[in-house]
């Protein structure tokens, strides 16, 4: 049990993607113009991650080594199609905002990375815990980045005004340069925190 908990919590801080595990940058940068979009993208990715980890860990002894990547891609892509269909059916406005980045979940390196590095070598329960932890960590990071960009770029968070009356939003934060610079600064802050932890 303790091992399962450890697999779950590592995704939340020690190896939190995309800040510690610098993978899956495209959706991270592209959809985080608002905190809400970050949550949506994060949860869609979590769903695919947990389901594909589950199926791959069940099939891990049946899949031949040589064709494993092809098999993983089929499993992951199937769940991505399911997410696409579900979002079209129940969350159409969010589907429109996330747009091309929903099909692109399939090439999110985090998912293939977890399938290859973890689910294909571990049993079902730890694999689910790993997927859930990594997915929620990813969701958290995207929400944080989305909130920062939304506050600076629009003066709101989750659509609610929080900045003072005379605050002039920096429109640039919602554009590509804002995304890159925000992520760069967050990564350097993470580096700083790690180096402080090490020196203690």
């Amino acid at each position: 049990m303790a091992a399962v908990v450890r697999e779950f919590t590592k995704g939340l801080w020690k190896e939190v993607p995309p800040f510690r595990l610098v993978l899956g940058l495209c959706p991270t940068l592209a959809v985080t113009t608002a905190a809400k979009n970050g949550i949506g993208m994060g949860l869609a990715t979590t769903f695919v991650l947990v389901c594909s980890n589950l199926i791959i860990s069940i099939l891990r002894n049946a899949i031949p080594k040589k064709v494993r990547i092809a098999a993983f891609i089929v499993v992951i892509a199937s769940f991505v199609v399911i997410v696409e269909l579900m979002m079209q059916a129940y969350f159409y406005p969010l589907y429109k905002i996330l747009g091309i980045f929903i099909p692109l979940i399939v090439v999110n390196c985090i998912i293939l990375g977890r399938a290859e590095a973890f689910a294909s070598k571990n049993s079902v329960l730890p694999s689910i815990a790993d997927g859930l932890g990594m997915g929620l960590g990813f969701t958290m990071s995207l929400t944080l980045l989305g909130a920062i960009r939304e506050i600076l770029g629009n003066g709101t968070v989750f659509g609610i005004h929080i900045m003072w009356e005379s605050f002039q939003p920096f429109g640039i934060m919602l554009k590509p340069p804002g995304a890159f610079i925000c992520l760069g600064l967050i990564l350097s802050i993470m580096n700083w925190i790690s180096s402080r932890q090490r020196s203690h």
Partner: peptide, 27 residues
């Protein structure tokens, strides 16, 4: 094994497509 995985995926997706169709059209 690869064929079986693909067949399983195809089956699940065909079902998912059918099940969500009315809701998708409405949206």
């Amino acid at each position: 094994v690869l064929t079986a995985i693909c067949a399983g995926a195809a089956l699940v997706l065909a079902y998912a497509n059918k099940a969500t169709q009315p809701a998708r059209e409405y949206q």
